[in-house]
Write a protein that binds this DNA or RNA. Sequence first.
DNA 1: GCTAGCACCCAAAACGGTTTGTGAAAAACG
DNA 2: CGTTTTTCACAAACCGTTTTGGGTGCTAGC
Lengths: 342, 342
Amino acid sequence: MQASERPTIKDVAKAAGVSPTTVSHALNGKGVVRQETADRIALVAGKIGYRPSPIARGLQNSRLGLLALVIRPLRSLDTFLPEGVDYFLRMAGAASLAAMERGYSMMLVDDPTRPGAPLSATAADAYIVSEPFANDPVLTMLSERHIPFVSVGSDPARRGQFIELATRDWEETELALDHLAEAGAERVALLTGTDQNAWNRESEEAYLAWCERRGQTPDIAAFPEAEGERIGEAAIERFFGAATGTRPDGLFCLTGRHAAGLNAAAHRHGIRVPEDLLLAAGSGALQNRISQPSVTTLDLHPEGIAARAVEVAVHLAEGTPLTVPLEVPRATLDVRESTMRG
Amino acid sequence: MQASERPTIKDVAKAAGVSPTTVSHALNGKGVVRQETADRIALVAGKIGYRPSPIARGLQNSRLGLLALVIRPLRSLDTFLPEGVDYFLRMAGAASLAAMERGYSMMLVDDPTRPGAPLSATAADAYIVSEPFANDPVLTMLSERHIPFVSVGSDPARRGQFIELATRDWEETELALDHLAEAGAERVALLTGTDQNAWNRESEEAYLAWCERRGQTPDIAAFPEAEGERIGEAAIERFFGAATGTRPDGLFCLTGRHAAGLNAAAHRHGIRVPEDLLLAAGSGALQNRISQPSVTTLDLHPEGIAARAVEVAVHLAEGTPLTVPLEVPRATLDVRESTMRG
DNA sequence: GCTAGCACCCAAAACGGTTTGTGAAAAACG
DNA sequence: CGTTTTTCACAAACCGTTTTGGGTGCTAGC
């Protein structure tokens, strides 16, 4: 008994005095095997520590039991944190766990279309692409190679063209805006990002429609997500600077870090939150929970999104019909100090 | 030409009028193939969109081009965020990128020893286990199955028994403590976690030694990492409550979220930071950067740690000798308002 | 002219499983 | 008792690559 080499199905077969076929059948409950024989094989397999090789098994149907999560803004991690940091960690962690629940492992992939990308980056059974860009090359490649995938949020340039988990950007935006209005805001502005994704676009559309309904003049500013909290000063200047006409008394800030930066900058400029400005953020629970004042924030429940995305991905990988609703779970609004007057 | 089926090496061989062997040799530069033939094969392969199957290739040398990152506290994501949230996201993201640079993909795995764990969870070529527990079963399993792995921080119960990336807990603790002393603290306390990992243990040892050298009485409290910011009140009671003897005027808080909670609670109790209490945190840059006051924090540079861990893992996977220093890069101290008096 | 050496290519085996088709023995049937 | 069916196990083919070990035809050496 040499411990160095991993035991194969042949070793089990030899030890149990049967053929590899029978071992395979017994362990997978596939063919017709006498109960007695099956038990003996299971026993022997356990004793010599046999584990079927997922690679060899995968060669049959080209399925490895592997899913991949492509978080598009991941690359930015080199130099700075992506927007909504905790959103993506919660998502990645939950996706990994949800995958395991269903018998899959989860790869975290940056960009499988990169020239030097390893083969393994395209070896997953199905892909989850979070917040694809417009005309995202990752979606194009997956589609061309007939690799199943689901995107969380649609490719803004190709809506409905692929299988996607619809986000509720529209209704989430309304939830936040309505809350600001109820809290007493009369002129609500929108602070959005510059990335070309569905979240930014649809939130803006929803905001415009909301203004239309309320008869309010829209007031929108866009800052790069990558700037994070650093936009504080610039944003204050933009909304409250000398050149500004009517100043907002309510602000919906799509990304959490923008909200955090603005929150801090407002304090420095003597703009009181919530007295002078009601502030709500669209994502990024963590940094807004502990600031002073804490900031009212949409909780998108990335765990729920991940779980559902994994569910869809598993169906795609296994070729079973999709019975899952293709929507993310509903977001909730965590009301905090920044929108509580009095 | 049927577009539905993925082209195999045989299709290329047929199209180029050669044998599969020659195709393999030509594309991998292995055997002796006439330049002309190799060019033609490459051309044909490109034309029909041939991509070698990583699974079939993996079957040869039982290597898939896959690494796995095991983040032990990942499971906690279901209900709450793990300590040092951004630490682990930065680590996971950077690890994924570093792996890709070297031709590998990165799996994110919770616990491959779980009974129902998918086979694929143990299919990686090498593992990185971040902050293993004492007698961590994951390390035990990997070791038993002769799967190469490197741990970031040692298993506290089995130090030096496996290949590990030494953390600099000791010198990092001294860095923070010295800074607190220089900033004016005379009685420095330590707030640690309850997890049985190297980080907690070694920091405590370093703190005790430091106190010994300075002739100061040690003052240590431990709270569960899982409690996060919620420990604020309890920690204040512990250090500044009525029953307390000498109160600390400096505090080194190992986890960032503990520091954040304590920072907020101190404010509520009229304990001024930094005037009454100099506060430093050992991890968790994000939440401490934007609080008021902002908190001086060790930046452990998870990207650097991940990059080095990946480097080691790749060496292990490929069986090449380890030339890399088995140490994490040096941490830096981001000095912020919580330790700046005047 | 015969053998060596070389350049180039290929057939077959191997990797570790699953799937398909077949055969032998035991059981059921007339 | 002969025939059909059922039960159980196995041999062989297969998945898509890489690797091993030839084999062919040409050139060079004697």
